[in-house]
Design a protein around this nucleic acid. Structure first.
Lengths: 204, 204
DNA sequence: ATTCTGCTAGAACGATCATTCAAATGCCTC
DNA sequence: GAGGCATTTGAATGATCGTTCTAGCAGAAT
């Protein structure tokens, strides 16, 4: 933990990691304090309570979508459809790197928090929407390579579904091939869509 | 809670419901005791500890797959591909019935339990496998309506992915259409696969 | 009737939880 | 250097957690 960071930032960074690896309920304030080398007074000076730390974490994920996830994943990848699978490949890398214990932090929190506060639930939704909107932009950029009239928002959500489902099964089975097979299915789906679009444009 | 049930069954039934609605960590032993009207001595006579209750719950889900889920969902539905979408429709019904707070109990537990005991993790995997195997049997029964050489296990896992991803997003957005759009995408996928299979068989 | 056995009642335990607070400290301003 | 404000310290609090334990109970076997 860099010492030049202010208290609030230190707490958010530590909480991002702890909520991700242990979950929200299983992470105690004491965990955050020992990780950051802070005392409870400092934390409760920066945040009214534990849930407000969670809110700050979700805001950080929201604001970090491009700088922390998409920009690195898309570096050197220009083709919009390649970008979609480059992003999925980044998740694959995270799964392998964590020996199949990786879980999407947003997805894990979304399923862990059963009776979530409206503010928390909305931030989870905003995080999902940010992700799918980025995919949707790729689909738009693909132009006529995809069929006209395709519900791009629905397909973008389906990409998220593929990622979340693959991560869930890979972690449960401790086997990354469960993720891979999902991506292969999605790849087939895109290939069939692109073949359909190509057939249509030929007709004109 | 039926009084004629034995202690162990009463606990498992109550725990199934509580783990499902509140999650494992957020369900206390006291919750189970007040729900079952039992005392802690009885619970700890039937189970060594809380995790063993979880194990019994997961075993109950495993054993209840057909009688509690698939058989009712497939009553009156004979076509194997219709059965797949009839099952998804049952999940849709659950989502609507719970006002979009429904979460697949297995999926929720799989993402909540980050450092799960090997026995627990394996039971989660077994539950997933039971589900996908049932779907795979439908795909097998579909015969040549699907392309030859299709990876049916992968497609079955993809059906599970569609369900879990749809449930996750529907609950997070409190909007069942997120589930519906996932099913529509999967329907498209099946239609394209069946069209491909039909084209191939014509050639012969 | 008595002993044994399986089960239950419910108080109690120590650990851990999120949170509070009075006192101490650092830091900027004047 | 003095005063004032923001921040930190770290012990204390009460609630709740999973779990334990002893005493008691019911029913079957002897």
């Amino acid at each position: 933990m860099k010492p030049e960071l202010d208290t609030r930032t230190k707490i958010v960074l530590a909480a991002m990691d702890l909520f991700w690896t242990k979950g929200y309920n299983s992470t105690s304030i004491a965990d955050i304090l020992s990780r950051t080398q802070l005392n409870s007074g400092s934390l409760y000076h920066a945040f009214p309570g534990k849930q407000d730390v969670l809110i700050a974490v979700l805001e950080a994920y929201r604001d970090g979508l491009y700088p922390n996830l998409l920009d690195p994943a898309w570096q050197g990848v220009e083709d919009p459809i390649d970008r979609i699978f480059a992003l999925l490949d980044r998740y694959r890398w995270l799964i392998v790197e964590t020996e199949c214990t990786y879980g999407c932090p947003i997805g894990s929190l979304a399923l862990e928090l059963h009776e979530a506060d409206p503010v928390v639930r909305n931030l989870l939704a905003v995080n999902f929407t940010g992700w799918t909107r980025a995919i949707e932009a790729c689909l738009d950029a693909a132009g006529d390579r995809l069929p006209v009239g395709l519900d791009k928002a629905a397909l973008a959500q389906f990409v998220l579904t593929t990622m979340e489902g693959g991560v869930m099964q890979a972690r449960t089975h401790l086997d990354v091939t469960y993720f891979d097979r999902g991506v292969t299915m999605l790849r087939d789906h895109f290939d069939m869509l692109m073949a359909r679009a190509a057939r249509r444009t030929e007709l004109i």
